[in-house]
């Protein structure tokens, strides 16, 4: 059974439409300004509601049991081992009901969202590509320049801790760290991807509003992990073009650039964009 197809019939258009369990988490997450972040909020809220329902039943039952079945003179326990066929079947059915109403649903929602959004990487001319290289303890961002190719002379000089993207445009990032494992986390976009040395990971997202948003490192990377902050600026299209043209080009790579091509490590710190996605 294809869960994605079943659950794609649940059309979710606006954000927080499924805030069934709203109120358990009395602090709101950062404002979601991404195209697909609502999907994550929705699966969380669905889980909130259904968990509240079942846990609520458990608490009510336990309270009832504590009162009704407390030991007192004249009251004795019933000798029921619960191992008759009837008991077993009812218990298994109840367990399956929990499984079907929670697990199967959130699994379906997740499969649908992964297929429709998170693993459906955008292609085309207007996609903005950025290479991200976190290090101890800063974020480096590299843009491809006018030729659209990375690891060429017209790449922009990498910015540190400043990332700019245009609004309403799909952005694909590829990330590989310089030293240890880091993790690229933008709370306002609900996205996160690890940066593991020796690997290049890919992530995409799209902003729906302009503004400045924080990037945090979500994998312990050393003693200043706690202040490894980047700023993502979402510009209007004009402002983005202005920013691009204000950046300098990198020029030809130096002789002693990091890395060694023979051993599979990229020549500049940038790498040739992995087109397989």
């Amino acid at each position: 059974m294809n869960f994605s197809e079943v659950y794609s019939r649940i059309k979710i258009k606006s954000k927080n439409q499924l805030k069934l369990g709203g109120g358990i988490w009395f602090l709101d997450p950062p404002k979601d300004v991404s195209l697909d972040g609502y999907r994550i909020d929705d699966v969380i809220h669905y889980t909130d509601g259904i968990i509240l329902f079942y846990f609520g039943i458990v608490v009510l039952l336990m309270t009832y049991f504590v009162i009704k079945y407390r030991a007192r003179p004249g009251h004795s326990a019933e000798y029921d081992k619960g191992d008759r066929k009837k008991n077993v079947i009812i218990t298994i059915c109840m367990g399956m009901m929990v499984f079907l109403t929670i697990d199967v649903v959130i699994e379906g929602m997740a499969f649908r969202d992964l297929k429709q959004a998170f693993w459906k990487f955008p292609k085309g001319e207007n996609v903005v590509k950025v290479e991200v290289m976190p290090q101890q303890f800063a974020w480096n961002f590299r843009y491809a320049g006018l030729d659209g190719e990375f690891a060429t002379a017209d790449d922009l000089i990498p910015t540190q801790n400043q990332m700019h993207i245009p609004v309403n445009t799909p952005v694909v990032i590829q990330i590989a760290p310089y030293d240890v494992i880091h993790s690229f986390f933008i709370p306002n976009f609900r996205v996160k991807v690890d940066a593991t040395p020796g690997m290049v990971n890919t992530l995409w997202f799209q902003a729906t509003e302009t503004g400045e948003f924080e990037i945090a490192c979500a994998e312990l990377c050393g003693n200043s992990h706690y202040r490894m902050k980047g700023v993502l600026t979402v510009d209007s299209h004009e402002d983005y073009q202005k920013w691009l043209s204000s950046q300098d080009e990198e020029g030809e790579p130096e002789e002693d650039d990091w890395g060694d091509e023979d051993e599979g490590v990229p020549t500049f710190w940038g790498w040739s964009w992995k087109e397989a996605i």
């Binding site: 999907r39 889980t47 959130i106 997740a110 996160k192």
Partner: peptide, 14 residues
């Protein structure tokens, strides 16, 4: 369960 589901875990991991 929140952590078992890949999508909610993307946000809640770490």
């Amino acid at each position: 369960l929140y952590n078992a589901t890949i999508t909610s875990d993307i946000y809640l991991h770490d």
